[in-house]
Design a protein around this nucleic acid. Structure first.
Lengths: 139, 139
DNA sequence: CGCGCGCGTTTGCAACTGCAAGCATGTGGG
DNA sequence: CCCACATGCTTGCAGTTGCAAACGCGCGCG
């Protein structure tokens, strides 16, 4: 429902996003808390949106989840959103250092990822992806 | 490259940096404070390294100084310095609609493209990499 | 059953953030 | 001279952050 223009994914709260990532990584709250060097009660409160974590804590959580800190900051509204998925396509399109084939490859892979994610949220369990990441094609 | 791991201790550094930028912009402390929506006493303390501002305050100060928030975060040691130019990597990193695996894949492919292009323009035989983008996209 | 272990959550508290109000100093002007 | 105004700094204080300890719950094992 949310792979849309403008607002894009926007799992409204940062806590939901963290819990989402934690679930996907199949970690318990306490595991992540320890990996991140954060107390588990506090992590619990953060995930449920009762507390707004500082940037440092956010960074540590990102580290514990092995995801990029930027992602979390953007989710937290601390860093600019950059208009979401459009930013990626436009950035790729505008990157003069890429050849046309590389550009097309990246855009294709990105589109495939988006399609897969959209399929994941719909009742269609056909999660067939494996984008054409053959890379090194060009050149 | 991502979230820093070691100790950060540049609290005073960021204060100096802010004061530097403020001086260069020829703003008084109070002016910047108002432009940033921060109280002037607090800004004073931040500049002198007595206080560790939260990410939100940092962002507002960056806005008041009309510099990118990222540079301030990097200065603060909250974000790690990103190697090169990078509109694409930033956009990818900030796109919350991607899973971390997908994000890593895209970044990897992009990096591989950059490396290959660099190798093409610079006759440096040492960087005979070329292996980076060949899939392993598992996910 | 009783005990241990894991899960997520609640509670009480030290430490901190960030602000409003006030202080100290410097400058120009009527 | 005295007032107005600017600069940056110090001081109490409400509101939060983040933690250690403790709680309730479910599950497997002796």
């Amino acid at each position: 429902m949310w792979a849309h223009t403008g607002g894009m994914a926007r799992i409204s709260e940062i806590g939901d996003y963290i819990r989402d990532q934690r679930d996907q990584a199949q970690m318990s709250l306490r595991q992540l808390a320890q990996a991140a060097g954060v107390s588990n009660p506090y992590l619990s409160q953060v995930e449920r949106g009762l507390r707004r974590p500082s940037a440092e804590i956010l960074g540590r959580i990102a580290q514990g989840l092995r995801i990029s800190a930027e992602t979390l900051y953007v989710q937290a509204g601390i860093l600019d959103d950059r208009a979401g998925d459009e930013a990626v396509t436009t950035a790729i399109a505008a990157d003069a250092s890429l050849t046309e084939r590389q550009r097309a490859t990246l855009l294709q892979i990105y589109a495939a990822f988006q399609a897969e994610n959209a399929a994941r949220t719909t009742p269609d369990p056909a999660t067939r992806d494996e984008a054409g990441a053959d890379g090194t094609t060009d050149m």
